[in-house]
Design a protein around this nucleic acid. Structure first.
Lengths: 133, 133
DNA sequence: ATAGGGGTTCCAGCAGATGGAAGGTCAAGG
DNA sequence: CCTTGACCTTCCATCTGCTGGAACCCCTAT
């Protein structure tokens, strides 16, 4: 399988696949002509990576998951642990974003948004304490 | 005001302030000795930037907001527009993260998490269609 | 004079790709 | 046999938003 084929079946851009080889996530064979020669197993691993990345796992987490995936002696508890930690970090990110959204939503609501220059959004950013309750 | 002082009052690391000068967000004066010499106005702008960044505005959005902030002829509608667009992108990110959280939460719940190797999380990542409803 | 706590510049690196240039390879058509 | 075009290769630069560190200068107090 050439890189274009495996790109199609895994859904990852060829550039990304080369990058994954570069950082040693996959180790495709090489043909006579110097082309990468991907096995079914490689393609499978790349799809695995794509899915894990789409769930927001970092590259290092993916590396761990992939090694657990390849380890037939693994304990499912180890996988679960990685997933739970990631779940926590997702929850933290959501909280952060929701705090931002809350603040911004309030400011946007307060701003009349016409052609006059006075603007509660800028007032807040400037930190002036001159905003009505 | 030296960079250390303005760092304390704005809450931004000195490194970050130098970086903001580098990308032309602020233009502090220079003293005889080559030290940056920040005015009150500079300090104010840096605090503004810190607050805008903490609300998740990108550097380019901050640049726009700052120029609106400095423009006494601005229309509040322009500020509001920037804020609303940012609000949308925050909402999209939250949705993405919640989708991830939902999927992962399901998988984590399904995984017994003991010392046996079989694991619904890995099964899902591998894309095997062998999962019960 | 020296010690310390400022400040300065510049260069490298993080994640996680992505874009592009310059060139090699391969199969098909004329 | 030659060309065309799609594919492949490597390498280097770029993006975002800083952050760390080296090597150096400056200023004040002792």
């Amino acid at each position: 399988m050439n890189i274009g084929d495996v790109s199609r079946v895994s859904g990852l851009p060829a550039k990304t696949i080369r990058y994954y080889e570069d950082i040693d996530l996959v180790q495709p064979a090489r043909g006579e002509n110097g082309y990468r020669d991907f096995s079914e197993r490689d393609a499978h691993m790349l799809a695995f990576l794509g899915r894990a990345r789409s769930l927001g796992f970092s590259i290092e987490e993916c590396r761990t998951l992939l090694s657990l995936y390849k380890d037939r002696e693994r304990a499912s508890a180890d996988v679960r642990q990685v997933a739970i930690e990631h779940l926590d970090s997702i929850a933290r990110k959501i909280e952060e974003l929701e705090a931002m959204r809350g603040t911004l939503q309030t400011l946007v609501t307060r701003c009349h948004g016409d052609d006059r220059p006075d603007c509660p959004i800028l007032d807040d950013l400037a930190g002036s304490e001159v905003q009505g309750a």
